[in-house]
Design a binder for these strands. Structure first.
Lengths: 225, 225
DNA sequence: CCCGTGCTGTCAGCAATCTGTCAGCCAGGG
DNA sequence: CCCTGGCTGACAGATTGCTGACAGCACGGG
């Protein structure tokens, strides 16, 4: 899961980064409105945390621009306490949730996770796909109820597949969502992780559509499998 | 265990702090309603002791706001003797227990402990996890019934793990619950305590999920063991 | 008031694990 | 039958966690 944090207060930003990272997100951070607009419009995020008070360019404006540009990432806005109107405007502008400042990190994480799941059209933290189950809160994976130990990277990969079970995911997309802008990696890195995952999960779990990408077996797109 | 004391009477506050600290809590203290609201809404506490008579902002109001913001920490309110209505209102507002003033410290401690345990979904003061048992009242720990002497910090760490046995706890979370806002410590401090604990408890008690965190062996999340 | 003791954080070196790359192999499609 | 894309085992650098040693600090005794 790739997340963008748009926040100018360095301390809050650091806290956000730490908490989201601990929750399994790959976090990127920008501090001013212009970079935010650019990044959000250019890259694909699974979640954007947006502070409304920003230097250079107002948060609401950015959000509207993103939406008009076709950016569909779920956006969680941070509003000033009691700024009622801001919330309404935020929702109008296309925010998916809001959280008044100050807030508890725990709560932000909970909402962030909920947003990501909802964006995938799925509500629960426990994702079931065929014999495979992925617990996004505990960050555990099991086959037929038997726990399978995964490394952080492997876990991020399966959970991404689980949350997007109805599509076939191109390797380039995985690259992007697992590593962010750090494009210093070959596409082959994904293949390596897939191999290791298959070894741990057994056959018949992760399918390949030659030329397109990967998907979880037992979900929709068996079409050309 | 991290506790917040909201109390304006300096003398009572000092007593509370001392007693709770002696009972193994990491105590933070605020004296007026506004700071209380802020702290409680921002930080994660395992227990909040809330006096209802407060300057600047009434205790009940604060409690209601916390609850509406999604704060789920157990709250123990201190009411004036015989203030019947206050108790009812308190429970309505989301308090978990109340104690009429004046009270004996022993009783407060007992109730505080009970609240913390209940919040973890566990009723008993004696936590059993595998060969390990943690007595939250006596603040003692035993392996196979044999007492193991622990330092205060070590005890706080194991009891936190015991009360959250069904999850894997990230080092950052431990940092937060063992030291509060005092973030002047390196993540390595946790590793040091873990090492010392393992030396005392023996192997096979505290497990590591590399990249995720720590957990007690013999509990649920073996997935990454 | 000084000293000793125990507690705890930091540091530095070590060990284990993770992960990206490479090179060769395999399989499917045309 | 060849070619391309994908798979895989081996290797090496990078990360992460572990541990022993040391030092600062608080506390209690004399």
């Amino acid at each position: 899961m790739r997340a963008l944090v748009v926040e100018d207060d360095a301390r809050i930003a650091a806290d956000l980064e730490r908490a989201l990272a601990a929750a399994g997100f790959l976090v990127e951070h920008v501090a001013d409105g212009e970079s935010a607009w650019f990044r959000g419009g250019t890259e694909n995020y699974d979640l954007i945390v947006l502070d409304l008070n920003l230097p250079r360019l107002d948060g609401l404006t950015i959000l509207k621009r993103w939406r008009s540009e076709g950016c569909e990432s779920p956006v969680l806005i941070l509003t000033a306490r009691g700024a009622w109107t801001e919330r309404v405007e935020g929702i109008d502008a296309g925010a998916d949730d809001y959280l008044p400042k100050p807030f508890r990190m725990e709560e932000l994480i909970a909402r962030a996770r909920a947003l990501v799941r909802r964006a995938g059209g799925r509500g629960t933290a426990l994702q079931q796909v065929g014999r495979l189950s992925v617990d996004l809160n505990r960050m555990t994976v099991a086959m037929d109820g038997v726990p399978v130990p995964l490394t952080p990277l492997e876990f991020r990969l399966v959970s991404y597949l689980a949350l997007n079970r109805d599509r076939t995911i191109a390797p380039t997309e995985l690259l992007e969502h697992l590593y962010g802008d750090d494009d210093s990696r070959e596409a082959n890195a994904i293949e390596a992780v897939i191999t290791r995952l298959r070894r741990k999960l057994g056959p018949g779990v992760i399918g390949t559509r030659r030329g397109f990408g990967y998907h979880l077996e037992g979900a929709a797109p068996e079409a050309g499998a």
